[in-house]
Design a protein around this nucleic acid. Sequence first.
DNA 1: TCTAGGTGGCGAACGCCGTTCGTGTCAAGA
DNA 2: TCTTGACACGAACGGCGTTCGCCACCTAGA
Lengths: 250, 250
Amino acid sequence: MAQPSEQAAPAEPSGQAAPVPPWERPRRAAPRRVFTREAIVTAALHIIDTEGVDAMTMRRIAQELGTGPASLYAHVSGREDLIHLVLDRALTEVRCPPPDPQRWQEQIKDVLRLVRRVLVSHGDLARLLPEIGFPTGESVTVTSEAILAILASAGLPKQACAYGVDALSLYVSGIAAEEAVRARSADAGRPAGEALAGRADRYIAALPPDRFPMLTGMAAELTRDVGDERFEFGLDLLLTGLAALAPVRA
Amino acid sequence: MAQPSEQAAPAEPSGQAAPVPPWERPRRAAPRRVFTREAIVTAALHIIDTEGVDAMTMRRIAQELGTGPASLYAHVSGREDLIHLVLDRALTEVRCPPPDPQRWQEQIKDVLRLVRRVLVSHGDLARLLPEIGFPTGESVTVTSEAILAILASAGLPKQACAYGVDALSLYVSGIAAEEAVRARSADAGRPAGEALAGRADRYIAALPPDRFPMLTGMAAELTRDVGDERFEFGLDLLLTGLAALAPVRA
DNA sequence: TCTAGGTGGCGAACGCCGTTCGTGTCAAGA
DNA sequence: TCTTGACACGAACGGCGTTCGCCACCTAGA
């Protein structure tokens, strides 16, 4: 890989080249590379997509870019900064509609469905959410703004809008992270049934039915994993609650 | 601290004792300590209470117990196991009532309020929740069983009970973790206003009002932090949604 | 009482992590 | 051409969870 430069390895008259003495070794034989923050985020997201969140270390990203981890710090202030950027990059795929008071509930659901879909499409990306407290990327901000606008168009009081957007995002983040754990387990090549649902299955099956009749009696329902059903159920709960706070429309 | 044992340091005739040669140094001068899993969990919880979750490392726990981190592994299989135990220890404080169909909503709320209170009482304990996928401690299991029993007593279908307990626990976990981040920031001795709410304040204040009129117009509501208000709001949403699924009672 | 096996305590070290420091390179501007 | 600031990058720091190998201790059985 490393090719000695000419000044560091003067031409030998003939025969085998003598090894370059240590004090004459070039620090860097290959031209230094040039990076951008975008390239770093792209590499990080690619690693998450192909290897999962646990593989996304500064070293692994640097390796992907053909350099060392220190090079990343010229562009991101640290791991946390990088996570903000990665999440925000993913969420640029979320498009929000202008508010329509007649169908505000469906609009909220649509936005949150899209958020979840984006998170899920990147494997276990959602597992990064708890590592940052308060997402501050542009995409997240735009999405929050849109949700607030929709809630406000429904006539909800300001405080209800504010608390509502918080509850909604907590729920979506939570379920996305839950699903991310499940997705990771499945992708890691574990035996079929070793997914989180499989573990819950076995856990519940091992419970003493006399002591835990509800859990054991609802094992199938508790571990049911059919499409978006679980997500939609929770969304319905929240939206029903919010609708109860909105003015009645004729 | 280390006191040479008598066999390793034979009595000198007089004067200053000669240093013990390396090959005669006792491996352990003090009697070996005896630990229990309970003591380890107690030490871990004490560290969380006094220094926060970030300080709870295997090394720090071992230090608290006067030993090295390797000693912990005879009693816990690893950090994840320890976290399960710590969370479960904390949640032993949760007491659940027998179901009363006439006041099932208040019962659910009471249980979840208690869960949250327990989590909050241990500083930023809730930040540990995302590190484990599916809590399997006894306390958690007992609590889930009780919530299911209450929901079932309200006449909710099995699937609604199952999805409902999931949504409720996701919400409580989410908001507890959110509050834990806030609590940690405040406890870390940062300047007043450096709490998460303070950061959100400044973040929202820095947004361009023409582009983000909803966020900037609701800054006060979004950052409002008054007792249990925010938590109760989300709980009300979920319970309203669940009540809509329950049979109507005379 | 003695012996053997199992359990557990513990030091040293491993491999990995995020990050910093110091040095060298490069490009733009004077 | 020279200077300066930004950036690339190797080496190393300090920290983490964990394992390995050794030794001590305890208990059960002969």
